[in-house]
Each structure stands twice: as C-alpha cells, then as structure tokens.
Write a protein that binds this DNA or RNA. Sequence first.
DNA 1: CCTGCCGGGGA
DNA 2: TCCCCGGCAGG
Length: 499
Amino acid sequence: MHTRRLVKRSILGSRVFTPSPTGDGAPLTGLVQAVKQQENRDVSTGPRRNVYMVLMQDGSLKEFSEEEIAVGFNQTTAKGPLRSSLKQSVWNGRGNGAPLQSQTMEAQKGEANSLSPEALKGERGADGRRTGRPLEGPERDHTRSVSLLEQKRKVVSSSIDVPKVRKSEEEVDMEKVTAAMVLTSLSSSPLVRSPPVKVSECLNGSWKDRGGGFTPSSYSSSGYWSWSGPSDQSNPSTPSPPLSADSFKPFRMPSINGPPPDDAIDEQDGSSLLFDEPIPRKRKNSMKVMFKCLWKNCGKVLSSAAGIQRHIRTVHLGRNCDSDCSDGEEDFYYSEIKLNTDSVADGLSSLSPVSPSVLHAHSNTTPLSRSAPSALYLIHTDHAYQATSPVTIPSTGSGSAASTSFIPSSSSNFSISWQSPPVTFTGTAVSPTHSRTQSFVEQRPQTIAVLSSPPRATGSLSRKSRGEGKKCRKVYGMENRDMWCTACRWKKACQRFTD
DNA sequence: CCTGCCGGGGA
DNA sequence: TCCCCGGCAGG
C-alpha cells in the first residue's frame, strides 16, 4: 500500500550513479541527500518529476533529475532512469532483487512506520545533515538503516499528527522487527536472507505465507508442519502465554476440506486465533509432525495430513476418488504424531489437535506409543472414539482431612484428587477454553505419575501401617468371626490387638 | 498370595 | 450408624 511512495522515499541516502560531468562515460557515485518533488500534487498517481540532491564523492552537492541518475550497486546495472529502478524495487519488492535488497528493506521499515509523503519533506533536513561516509562494506547498509530509522522517527513525531499511543506501538513493533531483521541479516548468508516482505506481512497480521517468516530452510522440505513455527514462535508482537493451546484446537484438520495448501492457511488462521492464548514458548524447531494411520494393523506413518488421508481413503476405505469426494471419514483413522527430537517436556507440551470435531476429547490426550528409544513419539488422540473418554474416576469426595483437591482456577469441572492413587477427573470433558487445565495435563505428564502416588502415600502418616501383631482374624480365624472385634469384622483397623 | 484396613456404599 | 465389601498395599 505505501510501498510505492515509501520506496521512493527510501532513495534518500542511497547510492546512485550520476552522469560523468566530463562526459567520458565513467559514471560517478553519490549519495542522495534530498528529493525535490516539483510536481507532487498527485503523489500517488500522476507522474511527477523529481530532482535529487546528490552528495558526490568529492563532497560537493549536485542536483540531478530522475533521468540523469540511476540506482545501482554495480556498474552493470547502473543504467536506466531512477524511476525504473525504483519500480523494480517496488514490484520486485519481495526482497528477491538482490541488487536492491538494501533499499527494499528500508522500504519495508518505512512502510511499517507508516510515513506519509509529507514526512519526506521534513526529512530532507535530516538527511541533509548526513555527511559522507564509507560507501562500501556490509555494515554500511545496516548502520544507515538504523540511523535512517531514527531520523524517520523524528520526522514522524515532528511532522505528522499521529496518536501517541499508536505510534509507540508501532515503534515497539518496528524495533522488534528491525532487530529481527538485523539479526537475520547478520546470521544469514546475504543470498538467503529472509525476504523482507514477510516481515511486513507479520506486521499486518497476515501469516498466510506458508511456513511463516521465521521458518528456516530446515523446513523447506515440507510445508505441512511448518505451521508450528510461526504459530507461537515468530510473532514478534504476541507474547506466548504459558498455557497450552493444544486444546484449543481450533486447528482444523488439515484435510477435511481441502488440499495441503489450504491446510496451511487454515492452520495459520488457527494459529492466529491462538495468539491470545497463553502458549508457552517452545523450541519447535526440533519438532516434527507426522501422521499415523490408526487403522488396525496398519500404522503407516506419513509426513503430511493429505498423504495419510489419501492413504486411508484409498487403502482402507477403498475409495479412489480424490479428496473432493471425501466425506472426512478418513480423519478418524489417523492421528497426528509429534516427533520430538528434543525433550519429553517439549513434546508433551506441544501436542496439537488434528480434528476440530474432537476438541472436547483432548483432556484425554495420551501418549500411545513410546517405542522410540531416542526420540519421543507422541500420538495425539484426536478422536473421541479413541479417547478413553471422559475419564470419570470416582471422586473421593468424602471430605477426608487427608484429601486435597487440585482445582484449576479456570476450570470448574475438572479436578484432580491427591487423596488416593486413582487420578480423579471430576466432570467430563475439558472444553477448549480450559486451557489451563489442558496445559497442566499436557505439559506435566510426569505429574500423572506423581498423582499416582499422592502425598498421603508418604506412608505411615495417612494410611495406618500394617499392624504387626496378631489380629482377631488371625487369632480366631474365619470360623470364629463372631469373636472378632467389631473393627476386624468390618475390616477396619483392629481395635482389640492394637500395636 | 496373605493380610490389614481404607474408603465406599447399602440398609 | 451398622455392616459389608472392593481393592490397595505391605509383607
């Protein structure tokens, strides 16, 4: 939207080639210090003629028209009018245009700053102050980008009536984005830098791009599971809360309605829906999602939902049509597996839903397989029929002094009793909104084990230790049960032969 | 497996 | 409250 004018604006401070004053054909380079827009009534549409103030290498300032100078980074591309060069940067603005990379990035930053054309005028002064500096070297662009950004901010604050609050928010985002970009630039080969466009898309909240802006090349082989990256890791402006989004399975089953590409989009959307969900930051880069066929005696594992669905559809359901005629039944015969090459905790905390139709069944998420020795396989039971279903273990509920119930504040229908070995889930299913509960269950699987040996299991304290002495039963035997003490008859602690 | 006995439930 | 019993857990 602002790209065009912002790119225009970004020419400031850029190196350009100017015609040789001596006419010998050797172009001179200089820095654009200012732009004079002689006909800028219609900035967005009408043609205009700009004059550029260029700081020459010898320190002198000269004016050139658009036709006279050209943006370029090497002698071979230094031909053609500036406008065309700019246009190139605009329409090739995805950042793929290597020669214009620097300016494109600046343009992106500028766009995020939402500068208006008016800002340009005010900026002249600022840019005009800039003096000659080394023109070469990788750091130059970065340094200039930062300083330019600073200057732009000044301009914004002084010449545009922008609501304070909003501006600060943008600044915050911009700082993050800038930092991210700088880091990306520094850590990546110049040729594989992330296209700046992705950054801008992030700002716009659009994550449609598969893989997300921070999905590194390691994910390039498959787009089906790249969603895990952006969903909770890449968004620079959205903190990931500590709760698991798992349940929340607003995620759509990738293949219910369409082919993989749509899946990616849906998943992205689903992820965005979770942005306000407290999601613990996880190291997703070591996570790999696979899809396992649950058909009896099959167990086929594929890397894509579409693949597994196709497999189920054709192999098990005996359907030869493509996904178009799918009724979604295959969704019930596979589940998502997260192969965690990292840690168990991470794996458990990042289980994802596969089917929205079973959101409620997620409290039953259980690891079905741990056969992998070095890697953790986590099978997420996506379907209600797979779930052990409402784990309704009788609650003790007797109000015993020894019992302590854990009741997540956000969930009124879920509780875990520490009183007795059986883990107690009071109530039926955990709804997707009970993220805290979900989080508790999934992120701390070991807790289950802990629950199996509740505090009172510390032994003698709660449960009376087994009496060593003779008891009525042993003394009188079953034949003389009527001679037992009442407690013994009632199978209670013997009152007659107390230890 | 034997046994003590907790927790729950029926009457 | 009495009484019985399922089932856990120590030995």
